[in-house]
Simulated scan of single mutants.
Amino acid sequence: MTGRGDWRSLRDRRMAEPGAVEEYEATRLAYELGKAVRERREQRGWSQSELAKAAGMTQSAVARFEAGGTVPTLNVLERIARALDAELSVQFVPKPATPPRPATA
């Protein structure tokens, strides 16, 4: 693979595979959750070990989560939120409506 077109083509083929879009979205969500926790932890000046102790977890579990390697249960997210003096908010947000396509003659 030498050019952007080759990588783009490979990505397009992979994303067309069954379940690929769902897996991508799950990975994106895990990354964003981990990033938000890391930012909040760093704002408090805490190490991963300090957060782990406050949340009743291990440092390695915090590290995996912050790296986007795992998606914790809602119970674990609640413990992390309490440890970080934050409120966990889980919600469904409607997607914006897509405009209708013009009719073809």
Score class of each variant (00 low, 15 high):
residue 2 T to Y: 06
residue 2 T to R: 15
residue 3 G to D: 15
residue 4 R to T: 12
residue 6 D to W: 04
residue 7 W to L: 15
residue 7 W to C: 14
residue 8 R to N: 15
residue 9 S to Y: 08
residue 9 S to C: 06
residue 9 S to G: 11
residue 9 S to E: 12
residue 10 L to E: 11
residue 11 R to N: 13
residue 11 R to K: 14
residue 11 R to A: 14
residue 12 D to P: 00
residue 12 D to T: 05
residue 13 R to A: 14
residue 14 R to Q: 11
residue 15 M to P: 01
residue 15 M to T: 04
residue 17 E to C: 05
residue 17 E to I: 03
residue 18 P to F: 00
residue 18 P to R: 04
residue 19 G to H: 09
residue 19 G to S: 10
residue 19 G to N: 09
residue 20 A to C: 05
residue 20 A to V: 06
residue 22 E to W: 02
residue 24 Y to P: 02
residue 24 Y to E: 12
residue 25 E to S: 05
residue 26 A to V: 10
residue 26 A to Y: 07
residue 28 R to M: 15
residue 29 L to T: 10
residue 30 A to I: 01
residue 30 A to P: 00
residue 32 E to R: 15
residue 32 E to K: 15
residue 33 L to K: 05
residue 33 L to P: 00
residue 34 G to N: 04
residue 35 K to I: 11
residue 35 K to G: 07
residue 36 A to V: 05
residue 37 V to E: 00
residue 37 V to C: 02
residue 40 R to V: 03
residue 40 R to W: 00
residue 40 R to C: 01
residue 41 R to S: 04
residue 42 E to M: 12
residue 48 Q to V: 03
residue 48 Q to L: 06
residue 48 Q to I: 07
residue 49 S to M: 10
residue 50 E to P: 00
residue 50 E to D: 08
residue 50 E to L: 04
residue 51 L to V: 09
residue 53 K to N: 09
residue 53 K to S: 07
residue 55 A to D: 02
residue 56 G to S: 11
residue 56 G to A: 10
residue 56 G to D: 04
residue 58 T to C: 01
residue 58 T to I: 03
residue 59 Q to W: 03
residue 60 S to P: 04
residue 60 S to W: 06
residue 60 S to N: 13
residue 60 S to H: 08
residue 60 S to C: 07
residue 61 A to T: 08
residue 63 A to H: 07
residue 63 A to Y: 02
residue 66 E to R: 13
residue 66 E to F: 06
residue 67 A to L: 06
residue 69 G to M: 07
residue 70 T to W: 00
residue 70 T to A: 03
residue 71 V to P: 02
residue 71 V to C: 08
residue 71 V to D: 05
residue 72 P to G: 00
residue 72 P to K: 00
residue 73 T to R: 05
residue 73 T to P: 01
residue 76 V to P: 00
residue 76 V to R: 09
residue 79 R to F: 00
residue 79 R to N: 06
residue 81 A to R: 03
residue 81 A to V: 09
residue 81 A to W: 01
residue 81 A to H: 02
residue 81 A to I: 08
residue 82 R to S: 08
residue 82 R to Q: 09
residue 83 A to L: 03
residue 83 A to V: 05
residue 84 L to S: 08
residue 84 L to N: 09
residue 85 D to A: 04
residue 85 D to F: 02
residue 85 D to H: 07
residue 85 D to G: 06
residue 85 D to K: 09
residue 86 A to R: 15
residue 89 S to N: 10
residue 89 S to F: 07
residue 90 V to G: 05
residue 91 Q to I: 05
residue 92 F to C: 12
residue 92 F to M: 15
residue 92 F to P: 04
residue 93 V to K: 12
residue 95 K to D: 01
residue 96 P to M: 10
residue 97 A to G: 06
residue 97 A to P: 05
residue 99 P to L: 14
residue 100 P to D: 10
residue 102 P to G: 06
residue 103 A to K: 10
residue 103 A to N: 06
residue 103 A to I: 08
residue 104 T to Y: 03
